[in-house]
Design a protein around this nucleic acid. Structure first.
Lengths: 347, 347
DNA sequence: CTATTTTACGCAAACGATACCGGCATAAAT
DNA sequence: ATTTATGCCGGTATCGTTTGCGTAAAATAG
């Protein structure tokens, strides 16, 4: 079955005009007499005419669509970000095509090529946890694709970037732990390649240093697959808990890692926060209802999505090549709750 | 800036051939000599040629893209469903264009027309909480757009539908409450128009009846805006709690409503489950970590998305008009946890 | 050695919309 | 009366790709 829409040709035939006349009438050209315009517009309205965007795309060499590549849609941070992207796109007349990498390098490469081959006008992307080689992105970018690096940003210079202040976020979370009396704080981060991982680990180590706590390198753990599966975090936790010096607090650097740590602690009957403090990066809106209520670093995902989309569309619609590249860094919010209050036990 | 890809014309010029020959060589036509084929394919590969999908769409009158209309992306149920849709779409060479209604009727109408005007080959839609008039959908459908009604299904007959057994889900949840000693069970449902609301309320009332509990009509509440904002639920809860007979349990019929009820109870110091039992429809994957752990009705969102996408694509690719319409109804899962165990108090 | 078939390719139309170029009226100006 | 101007509209190329049709050269048959 096919959905057949009315075309400019149909209108022309019905009204005994040429397609050019109809086209001009609809675009309100001065070359068309008011009466003809009237006739055409009336007929178009009655028959619910809409210009075929595909034909327009072919002619204009632009598709009015933007691609979004994230590792996972069903993730509160990314779905909120997509929400922001979609809202801007809608305003500016673009549609959003989404693709997921599932934290898999191969799927990221194929997804991004898929987006490019679908003639999107630009791409907002957040690289997968497995991605250490950026050549697929660099190639596409060099060939003129408009791109905005988002959240997990790449390190080449001439590209718009939108991210949060991960260093500060991790620093504050760690300092918060220390202030609350935790001394042996572990950090479970994402894959080591990622910008967010590096920055967060740096913030974590800097906070320790500034508070005269000696860094124990064994307290830093990396999730190669971004904590997508529970087992990854489980292994790390059991390793941490069986080490010489068990940590008394954990900074969990992603949504998935945070919930996995909580689940592990519940299963192993490790009480939070009395036996184990926990601060997690999370964008879920019910972390206050968890047992115990969770201290979280919240990222302004929606806002980030909006900014990324605005930058991308500005770049798409700019006549001249972009020369000034923005590196937008937004602040996170630390929501202090029960999971990081050492003195309190579970209610 | 524009992204310029290599075309069949470029290949033709470079190799001194006509575009038709190149086209046929790439499609492995028997009319082309093996040597020419070899040359063309080699050149195409080296220059990373990809057929322009827009030109193809124009010619084939299909865009290989499907639209998805949901009320909100940043909602665990819908993001998981989109995940399922996207996975099938990817397999079959389609891309997914998403649009949100935000539970707003006007936005739903414009979104769905936007999708149609973007020449999608088909649409998977879940109507907004405000939608009682389906004429915008019916018109589009009558004009030949391929459509699959999803989750919140419409009631016209000749259309594919994918939903869960809401009646049974609500029946089981209510029966579970009764078995656990709750007697005055309230039901906070979505907007009254919605299929899911009707079915869930029916299941709820049937369970009461079958267990010889007299239905109190004041125990049924509707959220006009789908519980998108907390205030809506807050008002309902305070009304319920200030009534003559306070309910001792609540069946919350959506993700948002469920968390809002929990939040209300926490703020008002209403202990769950001793003072108030709670079962919620939810697709969040950390409801077991809530305080107390939450008894939920879980919907197989991913699977539903996959089935809807498969039905839609089958319909799109079918030569003949569809005559047999599927009404797929999938079972939900009731995860029994602490929030519905009257005897237990909060740990 | 001619007649016919086969091979291998090019030409051009088509999809829907736009835009440049041109043309035909009528009216005004010379 | 002829030119010029102007209002109004049509023809056609274009975007990238596919495909039916035409055709030259080569291969085969008679």
């Amino acid at each position: 079955m096919k959905f057949e829409a009315i075309t400019i040709k149909d209108i022309a035939k019905a009204l005994g005009l040429s397609t050019s006349t109809v086209s001009r009438a609809l675009r309100d050209s001065y070359e068309i007499s008011p009466e003809t315009k009237e006739r055409v517009i009336e007929y178009a309205k009655q028959n619910n005419y809409r210009p075929n965007p595909i034909a327009l795309s072919l002619k204009e060499k632009r598709s009015s669509s933007i691609g979004v590549l994230v590792c996972e849609i069903a993730n509160s941070f990314f779905s909120q970000a997509i929400n922001g992207i979609e809202s801007v796109a809608q305003e500016k007349g673009y549609n959003v095509i989404i693709a997921q990498s599932k934290e898999d390098f191969e799927k990221e490469v194929s997804s991004i090529q898929y987006l490019a081959s679908r003639s999107v006008d630009g791409i907002i992307f957040s690289v997968s946890a497995e991605t250490s080689d950026f050549s697929h992105i660099q190639q596409l970018y060099a060939r003129g694709m408009n791109m905005v690096s988002f959240d997990r940003v790449v390190d080449f210079p001439d590209i718009h970037k939108v991210s949060v202040d991960n260093y500060k976020a991790a620093y504050e979370a760690t300092a918060h732990f220390i202030k609350n009396g935790f001394t042996n704080i572990a950090c479970i981060a994402n894959a080591a390649f990622l910008s967010i991982t590096k920055e967060r680990v740096e913030g974590y180590t800097a906070a320790l240093k500034d508070h005269n706590i000696k860094l124990n390198p064994d307290n830093i753990f990396y999730c190669l697959h971004g904590g997508l599966n529970y087992e990854e975090v489980e292994q790390i936790m059991s390793k941490a808990m069986n080490g010489k010096k068990k940590p008394d607090a954990i900074l969990a650097c992603s949504d998935k890692i945070t919930t996995s740590v909580m689940r592990y602690c519940q299963q192993e009957k490790i009480d939070i926060p009395s036996k184990m403090g926990l601060v997690g990066f999370s964008n879920l809106d019910l972390t206050d209802l968890l047992a115990p209520s969770l201290t979280v670093v919240r990222q302004p995902a929606y806002e980030m999505g909006r900014i990324a989309a605005e930058l991308l569309i500005k770049q798409i619609e700019s006549k001249r090549p972009t020369t000034a590249f923005e590196d937008v860094v937004i602040a996170t919010e630390l929501h202090q709750r029960a999971s990081s209050e050492k003195t309190k036990t579970r209610p």
